[in-house]
Design a protein around this nucleic acid. Structure first.
Lengths: 124, 124
DNA sequence: ATAGATGCAAAGGGTTTGCACTTGA
DNA sequence: TCAAGTGCAAACCCTTTGCATCTAT
C-alpha cells in the first residue's frame, strides 16, 4: 500500500459508504461507479492489502464466502437474513461460553451467527 | 439412492466409523480402504444424495469448507481446535439468543462455534 | 525515471457435470 | 436386460498469479 491510486481510493470509499459486510463482487460493482475500468484482481489485491494493514477485518459466516468490513467496531456478531441474504451487525454477545467448553479445552474465541428474517423480509 | 452399491456402503460406513464431521477428501481417503478405486465424484454425489435423504447434515464452520456428519444428534455446537484443526461436538447451547435479535427481526436459528485448543493441544 | 499498481488472461483449488462403461436388481 | 451408478476428464466458479502496460512519486 505504498501509493495512493484512484482504484484504492474507490475501494476504501465503498466500505465507508456501505455499512455492512461486503464480498469482493459487491465491492467491484460499487467501486466501478467511481472508477469505470476497475478490475476484480485489483479488488482482491486491495482487500488483502487492507486486511494486512488492519483497516479491514474478515466476516466469515458458515457456508458463505468471506465478506469484509471496516475494522474498529466493538465485539459483535451477525444476523444473516434468509430472505435478502444481507448480513446485519448485532451489538450483543451471549457471554458465558466458557461453561460450554469441555474440560481441558482452552477457549480462545467464539463466533455466533443468528439466522432468520430481517425486519423488511419478516413484514413481507 | 435407488441401488445399493459397494461405493455407497463404503461411504456410509466411513461416517459410522469416524465420529466427527468429515470433509469430502477425508471421506475419499477413508472410503478407499474399503473400495480401492473409489472416485471423488462418487463421494460428492453420494454425500449430496445422503444430504437429500436426511441421513447426513452439513457442518459449516466460518471460513472452512463444509464438513458432514450423521443426522440425528441432538442440538449441539462445535469447538474448532486451532492446533490440530479438528472439530469437536459440544453438547450445550447458550440459549437466550432471542434477546440479541433486533426488534422486528424474526429469529429462526443460530450457530455457535468456539475456537481454542483441544485438551491434547492445550497440554502440548 | 522507475518501482509500484493495474488489467487482462491464464493458472489453481475445490466441486459439479457430461459421457461412455459398469453393474445391481 | 437396461437404467442407475461409477470413474474419468472437462467444465465451472471463485481467487490468485504472471506479465506487459500504466502511473504516482
Amino acid at each position: 500500500m505504498e501509493r495512493k491510486t484512484r482504484q484504492r481510493d474507490a475501494i476504501r470509499q465503498v466500505f465507508e459508504e456501505i455499512p455492512r459486510p461486503l464480498g469482493p463482487q459487491e465491492v467491484l460493482d460499487a467501486g466501478r461507479e467511481h472508477v469505470a475500468g476497475l478490475g476484480i484482481a485489483t479488488v482482491y489485491r486491495t482487500i488483502n492489502a487492507l486486511l494486512d494493514t488492519g483497516w479491514l477485518v474478515p466476516v466469515e459466516l458458515p457456508g458463505e464466502p468471506p465478506r469484509y468490513e471496516r475494522a474498529g467496531a466493538a465485539h459483535h456478531h451477525h444476523f444473516h437474513c434468509r430472505g435478502c441474504a444481507r448480513v446485519y451487525e448485532i451489538p450483543g454477545c451471549p457471554g458465558d461460553l466458557q461453561e460450554l467448553t469441555p474440560a481441558g479445552f482452552a477457549l480462545e474465541g467464539h463466533e455466533v451467527v443468528l439466522y432468520g428474517r430481517c425486519a423488511r423480509c419478516a413484514a413481507a
